[in-house]
Amino acid sequence: MNYTLNQLQIFLKIVQTQSVTKAAEELHLTQPAVSIQLKNFQDQFDIPLTEVLGRKIYITDFGREIAVAAENIINQVYAINYKTQAFKGQLTGRLKISIVSTGKYIMPYFLTSFMQKHAGIELMMDVANKNMVIESLENNEIDFALVSILPSNLNIEYLELLQNKLYLVGNTAIKTKKNAKPEEIFSDLPLIFREKGSGTRQTMVKFIEGNNLSVLKKMELTSNEAVKQALIAGLGYSIMPLIGIRNELQNNELQIIPVKGLPITTNWSLIWLKGKKHSPVSLSFLEYLKLEKSEIVKKTFSWYENY
């Protein structure tokens, strides 16, 4: 056999995602490249690793055993790299973070200097909706999660990073009546929701129900970017986090529509399971944030205070 580390990594990702397409996306490779490497890997075994039925790929029992072995090999390779760097006096290891989708506008800025300072750290950051993020945390698959709403069903500790503000947003072509009451505005506007499981949707629904508002029309989209593009195109309005629409506001593509009771304010918080035994890497990152978060907010998010 002559399989490569790259083939092991690709096959393991296919098993984890149950999809060649998703594996390609997460590995930042093209689908044909992943398919070729999968074929080359499978050709080295007399027993099938996968089966394709219709358009779906299934992993055989033998394939799952090979995936476990592949993961062990990959972990050993990482361990060798970490030990080499640790011998040189560098902080090494993995930092695993899961963030809600809008958190992509925030978390990188709290990571940059830390990652630049510690070249031996491997960052693994997953972006998903709130339900999936909390599930990863609950299963202890990650070190930290970034959320805008603290989970009520988990025993956690947290560190607040930045205030979260949510406004009613639409494109600039529509004019709303001055001093209109919330019920008047919402009865006239087609409203776009995020998907179920989204923290933004949860906040939006809570506001609508808390104010006994009736909604004219509903649409549902599965990402913050999709909602933004729909608003710019004039499909409707939505309650959105300010953090994700800075450029659109400055370019006059979107506007904030004044509504009594808005903005809704929560906090972007880094959370972890209470009692978690942090690795040296995650403990170092936590200490870094406690020392540097105020300066990062001041330097990067000063524009935020203008709204």
Score class of each variant (00 low, 15 high):
Asp126Leu: 10
Asp43Trp: 02
Gly103Met: 01
Lys56Asp: 10
Tyr288Ala: 01
Ala226Gln: 14
Ser98Val: 13
Asn251Leu: 09
Gln85Gly: 04
Gly210Arg: 04
Glu253Val: 03
Gln229Asn: 09
Ile257Cys: 10
Ile257Val: 14
Leu254Trp: 00
Ser238Pro: 05
Leu273Trp: 01
Ala24Thr: 05
Leu289Trp: 03
Glu122Gln: 10
Lys13Arg: 15
Thr17Glu: 13
Thr84His: 13
Pro258Asn: 14
Leu95Tyr: 02
Ser294Glu: 13
Asp61Val: 06
Met124Ser: 11
Arg201Cys: 03
Thr265Pro: 00
Gly236Trp: 01
Met204Asn: 09
Lys39Leu: 09
Pro258Trp: 08
Asn131Gln: 11
Phe285His: 01
Ile47Arg: 15
Gln85Ile: 08
Lys56Met: 05
Arg94Gly: 02
Lys293Met: 05
Asp143Tyr: 07
Ile14Val: 14
Tyr58Leu: 13
Leu231Pro: 00
Ile97Lys: 01
Lys260His: 08
Met240Ser: 02
Ala226Gly: 14
Lys277Val: 14
Lys177Pro: 02
Gly236Thr: 04
Ile66Tyr: 06
Asp43Gly: 06
Tyr167Glu: 03
Ile243Glu: 13
Thr222Arg: 08
Leu95Pro: 01
Trp303Lys: 06
Leu154Asn: 11
Leu150Phe: 09
Val100Cys: 05
Phe207Gln: 00
Lys299Trp: 08
Pro108Gly: 03
Ala23Tyr: 08
Leu235Ile: 05
Thr300Asp: 12
Ile97Arg: 00
Leu159Asn: 06
Met132Ile: 14
Asn155Val: 06
Gly210Pro: 07
Gly93Asp: 00
Glu26Ile: 11
Val34Asp: 05
Ser187His: 07
Leu270Lys: 01
Asp188Cys: 10
Pro241Lys: 08
Ala69Leu: 14
Ile36Phe: 10
Asn81Thr: 13
Ile257His: 05
Gly199Tyr: 08
Val68Ile: 15
Ile59Glu: 05
Leu95Phe: 08
Gln202Lys: 15
Ile245Pro: 00
Met204Arg: 08
Met125Ala: 07
Gln7His: 12
Lys22Ile: 11
Tyr288Gln: 05
Asn164Gln: 11
Glu122Cys: 04
Gln163Val: 12
Leu95Met: 07
Gly234Glu: 02
Ser294Thr: 11
Glu305Pro: 00
Leu95Val: 00
Lys117Leu: 11
Ser198Pro: 10
Ser282Val: 00
Pro190His: 10
Ile149Leu: 15
Glu122Thr: 15
Arg194Val: 00
Tyr158Pro: 01
Val133Gly: 03
Ile121Asn: 01
Gly170Ile: 01
Lys276Phe: 02
Ile73Glu: 14
Pro258Ser: 14
Arg94Met: 04
Leu231Gly: 02
Ser294Trp: 09
Lys22Glu: 14
Asn251Val: 04
Glu305Ser: 13
Leu137Trp: 00
Gly54Ile: 08
Asp188Arg: 12
Phe41Ile: 10
Ile296His: 07
Leu235Ser: 15
Ser282Lys: 04
Ser269Lys: 04
Lys175Ile: 06
Ala233Phe: 12
Thr84Lys: 12
Glu157Pro: 03
Glu71Cys: 03
Phe301Asn: 04
Ser98Leu: 02
Ile149Lys: 08
Leu242Ala: 13
Arg201Ile: 03
Gln250Thr: 10
Met204Ser: 15
Leu166Pro: 01
Ile47Asp: 06
Leu146Ser: 00
Lys175Pro: 00
Tyr167Arg: 05
Lys177Thr: 13
Lys196Pro: 04
Ala226Met: 15
Thr30Gln: 12
